[in-house]
Design a binder for these strands. Sequence first.
DNA 1: CTCATTATTGAACGATCGTTCAAAATAAGG
DNA 2: CCTTATTTTGAACGATCGTTCAATAATGAG
Lengths: 228, 228
Amino acid sequence: MSQESPAAARADQPRRRAVSKRSLATSLSILDAAERLFAERGYDGASVRDIASAAGAQIASISFHHVGKETLFERVVERRASELSQLRLDALSALKAKAESLTLEALLSAFLRPYLEKAGAGDPQWLAYARLVAMVSADIRWHRISERCFDPTAGVFIAEIAKLFPQADRSAIAVSFIFSVSAMLSLSTSQWRIEALSAAAGNRPAMDRLADQLVSFCEAGMRAALEG
Amino acid sequence: MSQESPAAARADQPRRRAVSKRSLATSLSILDAAERLFAERGYDGASVRDIASAAGAQIASISFHHVGKETLFERVVERRASELSQLRLDALSALKAKAESLTLEALLSAFLRPYLEKAGAGDPQWLAYARLVAMVSADIRWHRISERCFDPTAGVFIAEIAKLFPQADRSAIAVSFIFSVSAMLSLSTSQWRIEALSAAAGNRPAMDRLADQLVSFCEAGMRAALEG
DNA sequence: CTCATTATTGAACGATCGTTCAAAATAAGG
DNA sequence: CCTTATTTTGAACGATCGTTCAATAATGAG
């Protein structure tokens, strides 16, 4: 409750310095390594020792830069969440600017494609991130992260879909939306299973082909579930 | 390579006894507790100590009855997998006996509904199991379990779907099938997220209503993805 | 009932977990 | 360049991990 004057604040906080380039690089490489290992082995399966080793840093650096394991996990998820949300909302804005009335396909495309383009470009960090999002979306232990990072944008798109289906109730829309998100995430988490079930030679389909198929699937599925 | 006579085999294996009822109960309660805790916290998040404690057994009993943690996990998954597969294949047989030509909706219903009816009946063990299956399906570390427990039945249904869409290629069918399975599993793993996105008062939809919506969603989605 | 086998018990194993610390090295600000 | 805040380092902490063991108790078979 003691409200300090700027002068007093400056007095007892002796001096301040900018972060060094090396420190920033360490912090970043820890985030990258954590992203990879958390995605690969899960939160409990990835140890801070392995993360530090993969980042070429000391174990103590993780606590120093990112408080602890749990905060590190949250920061890893948050890092790309805002970028992804921005891409989605930008696509939505572009859509609204172009046509006065939105279609369901355009809406789903705006939501689903940014994700798939990032992952499909082959960037291994984005592929890892996709697995992370799937983990967070499927585990109630991380519901606070979902609330903060993903639900706001999802809410915007659900509201737009609700305008297209005025007679459908909100929970039915939310259910269909989760179906769509789950299908999208399965492309990252279950690619190995798709290949196994495709049988025969491993002619894996290209990501942009998969993206088209996903949008078709979700558009038709949603329409059927909401119009019925 | 030494082929022993029955007499010799009986000689060096001194005597055999049936398992006691108590032993069987212990083994079973361990499986139940493991199912709950693995589903709740994941493989690495659930400790054998917590599992033993929840089962009212000693830690050493887990190694004694189920070899070790990894084997215990596999047995937990396998236990209900055969029952589930049987229900699905029975539904398929019933379908074939009734009508000479199958519809996509009937096929998907035969695959999806047994699962949802078990989980929807409110049996907490089956609800936990659904989360387990989602974990196995999304993690390549458990691909051997998927291969053994789930892929064979999935292959049967994919083959039936392939008959309905002769022009669609196998991998496209597999992709749509994984989309459908992911949507199904999301009802168990992301129910909390659905409720969050439904906003407003928590009027959660009944499971049989959700099942109808899921089948509609997947049927229309598959048709669009495979006919296009 | 007797006895050999099976199962349970409680304790301990070494390994690894996440976190913390003081000392040494680094680098920004004046 | 000097000072000093910042960062890195290596080691250690206590807690918990999965597994193993010898002993004790329980139990099916004869």
